[in-house]
């Protein structure tokens, strides 16, 4: 396995009862790469995320995070993972600082180091001045930014984002899309971003199209366009998912 591979998924399958949710899924994500996971509702994106984060057990196939098997070396694997879930998972009644300190404690970070990392991440997102405000007082875009800061506190190698821009207005969405793309290149961070929104794909991105539990496309934007004989990623997506909306 190459050192730059942050996430490796091999022969992954998963079923709910008799219904297959994922079927022989294979892909790799490398450091510094922003990968957009596109798929209509029910494509298996959430199931895939639950398996990567070990909320569900991997029965068929193998997931490796920075070389650590998620099933066998769960803690080492999870230590390399930062995640932003689709729903807000911040405690509304605590301040931004308290939420971040809680996360730092869960990752075993000491007070001084934790404070330093919190300051770095919040300053980068221009939220440090608001650290003593309760999360409830922040707007949707700022809450999302706090969640991204939290996911990065322990310096993970892989950042998972499960539709993080759902429900946000256009400027907030654009700011987050821009920020995450910057992070991937400047921090050599591997990003796996599940999205409904095709306009969040940048020309240099890696794209995985998941449909009915199967990987229909896996490659750079150019490679996917070439394979589908289309000129735009939107058309490529429709052709791969037979016209279903993302």
């Amino acid at each position: 396995m190459s050192a730059s591979v942050a996430l490796s998924v091999e022969g992954l399958a998963f079923s709910y009862g008799g219904k297959k949710a994922l079927d022989d899924v294979n892909f790799k994500i490398r450091s510094g790469e922003c990968t957009l996971l596109l798929g209509p509702n029910g494509a298996g994106k959430s199931t895939l995320f639950s398996l990567i984060t070990r909320l569900y057990d991997t029965r068929d196939g193998r997931i490796e995070l920075c070389g650590f098997d998620v099933k066998q070396q769960t803690r080492k694997a999870l230590a390399n993972l930062g995640i932003v879930f689709q729903q807000t998972t911040l405690d509304m009644d605590l301040t931004v600082l308290q939420n971040l300190r809680y996360h730092a404690a869960l990752h075993g970070m000491g007070g001084k180091f934790a404070n330093q990392r919190i300051q770095e991440e919040l300053e980068r997102l221009r939220l440090y001045e608001r650290r003593n405000e309760k999360v409830r007082q922040l707007n949707g875009g700022h809450k999302r930014r706090v969640e991204i800061a939290r996911a990065l506190l322990h310096k993970p190698s892989l950042l998972l984002l499960d539709e993080p821009t759902v429900g946000l207005d256009m400027p907030s969405r654009q700011a987050i899309v821009e920020y995450v793309h910057q992070l991937a290149s400047s921090k050599q961070l591997a990003v796996l971003w599940a999205s409904h929104l095709i306009d969040e794909v940048y020309p240099d991105d890696h794209v995985i199209v998941l449909h009915k539990g199967q990987v229909k496309a896996n490659g750079t934007v150019d490679e996917v366009l070439k394979a589908t004989h289309t000129g735009q990623i939107k058309d490529a997506f429709y052709s791969l998912t037979q016209g279903e909306h993302a």
């Binding site: 984060t53 230590a79 993972l81 689709q86 998972t89 990752h107």
Partner: peptide, 14 residues
Amino acid sequence: EMGSMRILLVCPLP
């Protein structure tokens, strides 16, 4: 249901 339990369960501790 709200998801914050997930944050706890995905941290690197048994």
